[in-house]
């Protein structure tokens, strides 16, 4: 009897916890990213930010050590290559002082080649996603710098993703390879538009809605289209066409693109302080 009562009690607890979870899920999904859940999340992330920074300081040397251990052969080859390059560089170094000055000037002038009129906040990537089911990174800038949900994130090479959560100290960026990511694109060759969507880690992005008659060449660069109501400003490079083919009887071409940015090695990114025009009809 005692055993029976105990297991009933356990089952009651389970039901209670399950119902609590479902209530919280419902609140969060129905709340649409605002409300109580959002503020709890923000508070937790801000509270955790110093812990994360401290832990990262301790871990990164260890991380580098193990990284080196596993890639010993690669490092050895790289070392040999670097020695050769060093020898070359020594030869050139004497005439390099003027080049140095030029380089400094170029660095001072350095700007994004696209979206030049949009203000941007530079930030450092401090963490990647703890989950296997979302492709995100965290950056070390938050609300005080003007970052808002939905803003585009780029590197010098092109589009990285968009901001999906911001707290005081941190912002979370959904990478363009995440299955929940969509972006309106324009093919640079033909000017035809389509929609690219994420398809998972290290997978090319399929592009929908490209007309059968459009001529698509391999390696062609695609950019954000910036059409009305788009969440991105026009002209940000997104990727290069990997393959394009037309299935018989299909109404659209099967186009896939590779992202221009190496998403596995993100270090510094820029958040464009840009919000879609609200007055779209």
């Amino acid at each position: 009897m005692a055993v029976y009562r105990r297991s009933t009690r356990h089952r009651f607890l389970l039901v209670l916890l399950v119902l609590t979870s479902i209530t919280v899920i419902t609140l969060d999904v129905r709340g649409g990213g605002g409300g109580a859940m959002e503020s709890v999340r923000r508070a937790a992330r801000d509270a955790f930010a110093p812990v994360q920074s401290a832990a990262d300081d301790v871990i990164s040397p260890v991380d580098d050590f193990f990284g080196g251990l596993f890639r010993y052969g690669h490092l050895k080859a790289e070392n040999a290559r670097l020695r050769r390059q060093l020898a070359d560089a020594r030869g050139k170094a004497n005439g390099a002082s003027s080049a140095d000055r030029e380089r400094d000037e170029l660095l001072a002038l350095q700007k994004l080649t696209f979206a030049g009129d949009v203000p941007a906040v530079a930030a450092r990537v401090v963490a990647t996603s703890p989950s296997n089911f979302q492709l995100t990174v965290e950056i070390d800038k938050g609300l005080p710098t003007g970052i808002q949900k939905g803003m585009p994130v780029v590197t010098g090479a092109g589009l990285v993703g968009r901001v999906v959560a911001v707290s005081q100290e941190r912002a979370t960026i959904l990478l363009l390879t995440d299955p929940a990511f969509n972006v309106g694109i324009r093919l640079s060759g033909s000017g035809d538009v389509g929609v690219a969507r994420g398809n998972g880690v290290r997978q090319p992005l399929p592009v929908d809605l490209v007309d059968v008659g459009t001529k698509v060449t391999g390696g062609e660069v695609v950019e954000t289209s910036g059409l009305q109501g788009s969440v991105f400003p026009p002209g940000i490079p997104v990727g290069k066409v990997r393959a394009a083919k037309v299935q018989p009887g299909s109404l659209q071409q099967e186009v896939s693109i590779d992202p221009l940015v190496d998403l596995s090695r993100l270090d510094f990114v820029k958040v464009l302080i840009w919000q879609p025009k609200a007055d779209t009809p």
């Binding site: 389970l14 916890l17 399950v18 609590t20 979870s21 479902i22 209530t23 919280v24 899920i25 609140l27 969060d28 999904v29 859940m37 709890v40 999340r41 937790a44 992330r45 955790f48 996603s129 703890p130 989950s131 089911f133 979302q134 995100t136 999906v164 959560a165 979370t172 959904l174």
Partner: peptide, 20 residues
């Protein structure tokens, strides 16, 4: 629930699965 605080998936989803 603690992990959910740091994810973008709906809050409570990991809590539901992990408690079961």
């Amino acid at each position: 629930i603690v992990l959910d605080l740091f994810l973008e998936t709906p809050m409570g989803l990991s809590a539901l699965v992990f408690c079961i």
